[in-house]
Simulated assay, not measured.
Amino acid sequence: MQQLAVFGGTFDPIHWGHLLVAETALHQVSLEKVIWVPTLNPPHKEAALFEHRLQMLQLAIKDNPAFTVSLVETNRSGTSYAINTLIDLSACYPNTHWYWIVGLDTFQTLPGWYRGHELAQMCDWLIAPRQLGGETITQSKLICKQVEQQLKEQSAIVHWQLLNIPLVGVSSSLIRKFCREGKSIRYLVPEAVRSYITNNNLYSYKSE
């Protein structure tokens, strides 16, 4: 049975932090592949055009044969739910033990997801600690155990582990802010992504 991981997100834009998380997951649990799933229409927030985000993602991962992009989200109309994503991917990749890569703050919301108690048990969860308020690993574990308890109250069992990554204080929102302010984003994103952002005038006031 192969081991694959889903890494979903807006990736607006993808940055070195995302890549570090995926690479860590790849080796920490011996994954065959990390499947990146860019969100088509992210709920509750505006984002750059899907075509731009997809192109940047493909540029960023092209040198890693263990990374691949799935366009499964583009085949579905209406609201996109994570459980549907995993069901569709399972049809494409049978006989698979699934993992889901997610940030700690997102994992906290899992009990409230659409059919979250079902999804929780369909894969193992790889949690990326976030540099929010200087949380320690101990605090991160405590948060994950609280989620575990909430799901248990919904009669669901969740298997999770924290990814052993150095905390990198870079985020997509920070990169967008720097672009709006005309600051350099060199070394925050892969050079090919930086060039793409510059050439397409993404995230600057002129592009809004």
Score class of each variant (00 low, 15 high):
residue 81 Y to P: 04
residue 119 L to D: 09
residue 64 N to L: 04
residue 70 S to K: 00
residue 113 W to E: 00
residue 3 Q to I: 04
residue 161 Q to L: 15
residue 59 L to I: 12
residue 189 V to R: 07
residue 158 V to T: 08
residue 167 L to S: 13
residue 149 Q to D: 09
residue 66 A to G: 03
residue 55 Q to M: 13
residue 25 A to F: 04
residue 142 L to P: 12
residue 118 E to V: 03
residue 94 P to G: 04
residue 196 Y to F: 10
residue 68 T to C: 12
residue 107 F to A: 01
residue 136 T to H: 09
residue 190 P to Q: 03
residue 29 V to F: 00
residue 153 E to C: 12
residue 37 V to K: 01
residue 125 W to F: 09
residue 35 I to H: 00
residue 137 I to D: 05
residue 73 E to W: 01
residue 135 E to F: 12
residue 12 D to Q: 07
residue 124 D to M: 10
residue 100 W to G: 00
residue 184 S to R: 09
residue 74 T to A: 11
residue 202 L to M: 12
residue 162 L to Q: 05
residue 25 A to E: 01
residue 148 E to A: 08
residue 156 A to V: 06
residue 140 S to Q: 14
residue 68 T to Y: 03
residue 78 G to N: 12
residue 137 I to S: 08
residue 96 T to I: 04
residue 122 M to I: 13
residue 133 G to W: 13
residue 132 L to G: 14
residue 119 L to C: 15
residue 78 G to L: 12
residue 56 M to F: 08
residue 205 Y to P: 11
residue 17 G to M: 02
residue 205 Y to K: 15
residue 143 I to N: 06
residue 72 V to C: 01
residue 105 D to N: 08
residue 85 T to G: 03
residue 169 G to R: 07
residue 208 E to N: 15
residue 110 L to M: 06
residue 185 I to N: 00
residue 138 T to H: 14
residue 27 H to A: 14
residue 192 A to K: 10
residue 81 Y to C: 05
residue 91 A to I: 10
residue 85 T to P: 02
residue 177 K to T: 13
residue 46 E to P: 14
residue 57 L to V: 05
residue 91 A to H: 07
residue 140 S to F: 12
residue 130 R to Q: 14
residue 78 G to F: 11
residue 158 V to G: 03
residue 150 Q to V: 02
residue 65 P to S: 02
residue 161 Q to F: 11
residue 24 T to H: 14
residue 187 Y to N: 14
residue 143 I to F: 06
residue 109 T to K: 13
residue 183 K to L: 11
residue 72 V to F: 01
residue 117 H to S: 15
residue 156 A to R: 04
residue 144 C to V: 02
residue 43 P to A: 07
residue 13 P to V: 08
residue 134 G to I: 09
residue 65 P to E: 01
residue 177 K to P: 04
residue 168 V to A: 09
residue 17 G to A: 05
residue 172 S to D: 13
residue 19 L to I: 05
residue 175 I to A: 05
residue 14 I to F: 10
